[in-house]
Simulated scan of single mutants.
Amino acid sequence: MERLMLEILANEVKHGNRPNNSFESSSFTRVVDAMKDKFGSLVSKKAKHALEKSMQQFCRLNLPSKECIIVGDLGCASGPNTLASVKEIIELIDSESRNMNYGLPYIQVFLNDLESNDFNSIFKSLPLFYDNLEKYGRQSGSCFIATMPGSFYGRLFPDHSIHFIHSSFSLHWLSQVPWGLVNEKGLPINKGNIHIGKTSPPEVRRAYLDKFANDFTNFLRMRSIELMPNGRLFLTMLSDNHHRHDAYNALDLLAMTLNDIHGYREQELRHIIEKEGSFKISHLETIKVLVGDAFGNHAWSLSRGFRAVYESMIVTYFGDSIVGDFFNRIHAFYTMEKSFLDDIKQPKD
């Protein structure tokens, strides 16, 4: 794997993409794809299994009477993997259709993200995406993809117009910074953290949780209006592992060097969903994966991965002059943290 990473890096250098410059997200995607091929992805595997189960239940209720399935993918972002979830959903619908001896339905997909998202790059990728669907067995003109810009904390679609709504790793982004993160003197009460860290006081967690509860309740309420009867809502979200004292996660590493994002615990999600009352929980599972699990404990690949995901946000708030040094520090802090955890896990003589 190290050789593979070095080969990819060497190829990028040939194209002028040196390590001290911006490392393209497409290059990081090649590394991640290679790691998945060799080791498999725990999150993807378990999430796909849950999605398959949800889609089977959905198709049994809807395929006999539906000539066109309407799908919404919320928080789609833009990049090489934007259409990956859509492709998987289409393949699952087609597989269930064949298993049930039905013809393949038309599929209309709406991709959603904020107005600032680079939808043009998605449009440019659609011809190849449609070609691949035809190779897979879909007729030309049987799948239609459009965009629906806007915040998913508000209304996006007409009443009862969507069959299946999917969102992956988007709902941890709050609609705005929570209130109550400063004291009566206007000083921050979460000093040294950029999210709910291990050293955050209880009132910080309460402020984030209250804001998340409000946002997530709005999200559920809007989706309950937009979904058709027998519709499905499938969400993959970040969770909270701070009850593990030996755990290091992505936001802890960012905090060591800078986010108004955080994951929430399973019981908190269940309480919010049941309190809002529009949805019945079909499946709720926590998949525990640490940073090292996702990146194979390679500090190089982790720091490049962080750069691919977070660079635009860092530049927006702090400018591009700190980018190189910032992500070098991510590398250093991860190496130091991992070394410390490895030491304390060694068996005592």
Rank of each mutant, 00 (worst) to 15 (best):
P80N: 02
N81T: 14
A84L: 12
A84M: 09
S85K: 00
V86W: 02
V86C: 15
V86G: 00
V86S: 15
V86Y: 02
K87Q: 12
K87Y: 07
E88K: 01
E88T: 12
E88P: 00
E88L: 11
I89C: 10
I89A: 14
I89L: 15
I90N: 04
I90V: 15
L92Q: 12
L92T: 04
I93M: 04
I93N: 00
I93R: 00
D94L: 09
D94E: 11
D94Q: 04
D94H: 08
S95I: 03
S95V: 01
S97H: 05
S97N: 06
R98H: 12
R98V: 13
N99P: 01
M100D: 06
N101G: 00
G103I: 01
G103D: 15
L104W: 08
L104Y: 14
I107K: 02
I107H: 06
Q108I: 01
Q108E: 14
Q108R: 09
V109P: 13
V109K: 03
F110V: 08
N112D: 08
D113M: 05
L114A: 09
E115P: 02
E115Q: 13
S116P: 01
S116R: 12
D118M: 08
N120C: 13
N120M: 10
S121L: 07
S121A: 14
I122P: 12
I122N: 05
I122K: 02
F123K: 03
F123V: 07
F123Y: 15
L126Y: 06
P127D: 11
P127G: 10
Y130D: 06
D131R: 14
N132W: 00
L133H: 07
L133F: 08
E134A: 07
G137K: 01
G137W: 03
R138T: 02
S140Y: 14
G141E: 03
G141C: 06
G141P: 07
S142L: 04
C143V: 15
C143Q: 02
C143G: 00
F144P: 05
F144I: 09
I145S: 04
I145F: 06
I145G: 06
A146L: 03
A146C: 09
M148G: 00
M148N: 12
M148I: 13
M148H: 00
P149F: 10
P149V: 05
G150R: 03
S151V: 11
S151W: 11
F152T: 09
Y153S: 13
Y153C: 12
G154H: 12
R155D: 04
R155M: 07
L156P: 05
P158W: 06
P158S: 11
P158Y: 07
P158T: 02
D159V: 13
S161V: 03
H163K: 04
F164T: 02
F164I: 04
I165G: 03
